[in-house]
């Protein structure tokens, strides 16, 4: 027979209360809005799943979701291999380790809106070092007019801002590998590639799982930097999900559709995170 100890609930009650206040209650408010039609003067009508149906059939939402997936896919494909590569190149011992770590951590310490503003100024074709430089070198570059240039700029900004996180995590994973593994590999005569494939990569697997999850979630919800840098433009070229959502909620004040979109957005993030986690930890106890 299994005895359940009811007093346990008493001990977790404060945490449950806290979670209720800062997560569940706001979430329920959103659920509340998502099934109602709102007018001025606090007048609400029940509208059922209408907003959800509308959203899921909306081209605008499909386009934003597509751009979002493309953005996240591109930056994951760049930042993970690049981060691991940089971590492999970093010195493992000696006085340069702290220097490298601090240099790597610098972009992470800059507030998001500042990053957006920095890259905006940097990439401006008239005055920016990068934008002006490229144009001076004969490359036609204008992120305020060309969608391709805008995409290059936001991807470059995100890679600059967040690759460091992958580097730090991968470096932590690498530092945890005892020297004896490398000695054993040398004694076996293993190649550099096998050392990476059969020692370093499996030993980094856990931290890389964390890196993928963090980078997925952060990039999937990215707002501030892109909002400051391109504002979603030119046109809607860089209007990712969160930017679209804010336009809907604050720009048009469509509370119901925006709430429905928030929920769908949240569920997608949750689902994809769970998928990543399950796939990457498969085969472990």
């Amino acid at each position: 027979m299994r005895r359940t100890n009811q007093i346990g609930w008493l001990f977790v009650a404060p945490v449950l209360l806290l979670v209720a206040f800062n997560a569940l209650i706001p979430l329920m408010t959103v659920v509340n809005y998502s099934v109602q039609e709102s007018f001025g003067d606090n007048v609400f009508f029940w509208s059922g799943l209408q907003w959800f149906e509308q959203l899921l059939n909306e081209d605008r939402f499909h386009a934003a979701l597509g751009r979002q997936l493309m953005f996240t896919g591109i930056i994951l494909a760049i930042e993970l291999p690049l981060g691991v590569a940089i971590a492999l190149c970093m010195p493992k011992k000696g006085p340069f380790v702290p220097v490298c770590l601090v240099l790597m951590a610098l972009p992470l310490l800059i507030p998001w809106n500042v990053v957006g503003a920095m890259w905006n100024i940097l990439a401006l074709p008239e005055i920016g070092l990068l934008g002006y430089g490229l144009n001076a070198a004969g490359i036609d570059f204008n992120f305020t007019q060309s969608p391709v240039d805008a995409w290059i700029t936001i991807v470059a900004m995100d890679v600059w801002h967040w690759t460091s996180l992958v580097v730090l995590l991968a470096f932590a994973g690498l530092s945890a590998i005892p020297d004896a593994y490398y000695q054993a590999a040398r004694i076996d005569g293993a190649s550099r590639w096998s050392v990476f494939r059969h020692i370093e990569l499996p030993k980094m697997k856990r931290v890389l799982t964390i890196a993928v999850l963090l980078r997925f979630m952060d990039s999937f919800m990215i707002y501030t930097e892109i909002s400051v840098l391109t504002g979603g433009g030119p046109g809607n070229a860089t209007t990712l999900l969160s930017i679209d959502l804010v336009k809907k909620a604050l720009g048009q004040f469509d509370l119901g559709p925006a709430a429905a979109m928030s929920l769908v957005y949240f569920l997608i993030t949750l689902l994809v995170s769970w998928l990543f986690y399950t796939l990457m930890t498969r085969g472990e106890q």
């Binding site: 494939r197 059969h198 020692i199 499996p202």
Partner: peptide, 15 residues
């Protein structure tokens, strides 16, 4: 032609 066994259990984790 050397072989070594370490104090820690050293094997290739993914193999």
């Amino acid at each position: 032609n050397v072989a070594m066994v370490h104090q820690q259990f050293i094997n290739y984790p993914s193999l």
